[in-house]
Amino acid sequence: MFDIIPWRKANKAMLLEIKDLYVQVEDREVLKGVDLAIDLGEVHVLMGPNASGKTTLVKTITGYPGYKVTSGRIFFKSEDLLLKDISERAISGIALAYQNPPQIRGVKFRDLLRIIAGREPWNPLNGPEETFATELIVAAGLDADFANRDLNIGFSGGERKRAELVQVFAMRPDLMILDEPDSGVDIDSLKAIGKRISEVVSDLGCCVLVITHHRHILQYLRPDVAHLIYGGKIMRSGNPEEMIPRLEELGYEGYVKHTLGASR
């Protein structure tokens, strides 16, 4: 893999390093030997058909119970990530924007953002208006009144994606994992979302692992590496500019058959 990232040096520790990872979900083996390494400042895109293990991979990195690592290692900032629980991983710098976030009744969007940023939940007795969370929300292109709404309740598909990004940005992570930030989003919003992500990424100087089926969002993210996951394995990692047009032309199945089948 080092050949595709010329500036990487051999033996240098990566920000995130996944080695030969096997994961079971409900006694079924979903990941079957995944290797992946992301270094500081890099943007990676992970592509693959449904049920190929994309979400399993990100939930495993995030530390979800129920995703059982049967073998392999994950290192983040040279620490063994598998020893940490889900909130410890978030604190150490990993943030996930969910594809389908849950709705949580009674939990105000503003309060979660404030807690993420180490502040107290908003108390209306303390002041006339909440500003901290509201500014973050408005910056992501949502109306200010989202601050007072219950988390994800009554949010449209596009609003949920933006709400996810607001939270991930507020976490100021070192690694941002975006699970299909573009699904169900119209073209205009896509542009706005894409621009906003790239702004924040360059502000924070963080790494990105983005899952997507479409190249549009990648115009804004400009990935350094593309990975194709198929049947629970990374089948190929390479230059996105070469891989993605071929993937779009052949489809996941076709790409695997024609490109990789030949080299096997």
Binding site: T62, G63, Y64, P65, D85, I86, S87, R89, A90, I91, A95, L96, Y98, P101, P102, I104, V107, L112, I115, I116, Q167, M171
Partner: peptide
């Protein structure tokens, strides 16, 4: 709901 709990924990909130 575990889903809600893990979601908030993945934002860095302790259990």
């Amino acid at each position: 709901a575990e889903e809600e709990l893990y979601y908030l924990m993945s934002r860095g909130l302790k259990k």
